[in-house]
Design a protein around this nucleic acid. Structure first.
Lengths: 205, 205
DNA sequence: GAAAAAATCATGGAAAAAGAGGAGAGGAAG
DNA sequence: CTTCCTCTCCTCTTTTTCCATGATTTTTTC
């Protein structure tokens, strides 16, 4: 029995690429595609595929949100996340919201087919590189910040001085100074410039 | 006479998608693809296509850099930038480094073909949305920096103090201070934190 | 070749951040 | 109950940045 699949991605080239890759595969039946979350949901009211390949970045809604909604209404459908960049947080969130797998857009034909097979059998599938990213980022230099440190960091990035941050958070200037020093230490840097650069890199701000 | 094209993109699905889209087109001859800047340059030593479709994000080198290199060695080749997100600075930089056009990855088949036709005729082609982005951002707040200002900004972002920057550039500390002040003024901010945040946003660093 | 822009340097002062060190209160986890 | 973490607060010194103002030389641009 063939596995029916549907794809949601706002990039025409990617849709076409996947279709072309899966064309010769007899075990896979192409049901169509949607370029927005809305049209995906509209389609699902008519027909339900076995598997949805879903981009994490959609124009009208995040793939993470769509993932949650689809799983809520149609729990039988397996969802495979699809992303061009290996952002660990997205991967994590897709899986938390019911996705069964994750493949990167530079995946090979074999990898996609393997992912589809895996999820139809109820297994999870993380493409090698995505798995590596999860791993790499875990032991990378990205520091773990406390709630307060994130608040302070955000305000620093907005240009507030220690004194202004202190006023805003109703704490002492010296406390802000301590948080700031801890931030510098956690990031392994010694001034605001590099702190903000890394914070931007790690998407804290 | 057919136009020969080559594609550089690290996403297999995109390569496959474009190939599939251009397959029926008789006027276009598919020469092959590369997934890294290095293999692209290696290919070009053997054969030169008329047009290269080039992703701005490559694993080993930025598309902007590759663009510059290719145009330097093979000025006859037209380059079309390819990107999934419409970041104005990338578009701008690709064009500054010799690209003749720019299409987004959600472009339609017609748009890609039109882009290829345009550049072979020596015209520039910016896909509608990309053009909109350029326009929108042109009258945005992105400041225009001088060569020296960019150098100073980069070093500040690396964590160097005015004194250290001065030593590195063989200029006086007061000169660095002046450049720094001008940077703050051009960005319309009043401290390093916001300066670096915006610099990161505008891809200066 | 004149005008504009960029790069260079300076003085002096106020504000802010960085560096070092210490310390107490409260909560979570073992 | 103790240990660890987070958040809080403090002093003191040094370094760095920010602000105001002005000026000379070199390079671009028209």
């Amino acid at each position: 029995m063939a596995t029916s699949i549907f794809i949601v991605d706002d990039h025409y080239m990617v849709i076409e690429g996947i279709r072309s890759l899966l064309q010769p595969e007899k075990k896979i039946e192409w049901m169509g595609h949607a370029m927005t979350a809305a049209s995906c949901l509209a389609f699902l009211q008519q027909e339900q595929p076995d598997v949805i390949l879903m981009d994490v970045n959609l124009p009208d809604k995040s793939g993470i949100e769509l993932c949650r909604e689809v799983k809520e209404k149609y729990p039988r459908i397996s969802i495979i996340g699809l992303s061009s960049f290996n952002q660990q947080s997205f991967i994590q969130k897709m899986l938390e919201h019911g996705a069964s797998g994750y493949v990167l857009k530079n995946a090979t034909r074999e990898e996609i087919i393997e992912a589809i097979e895996a999820v139809t059998e109820g297994r999870k599938f993380l493409s090698y590189e995505a798995a590596m990213t999860v791993k790499k980022n875990e032991d990378s230099k990205m520091p773990i910040l406390t709630r307060r440190e994130k608040e302070v960091l955000t305000l620093i990035a907005e240009g507030l001085t220690n004194h202004e941050v202190a006023d805003k958070l109703f704490i002492s200037t010296t406390t802000v100074d301590t948080h700031r020093k801890n931030l510098l230490e956690k990031f392994g840097v010694n001034n605001t410039a590099v702190l903000i650069r890394l914070a931007a890199k790690y998407q804290f701000i």
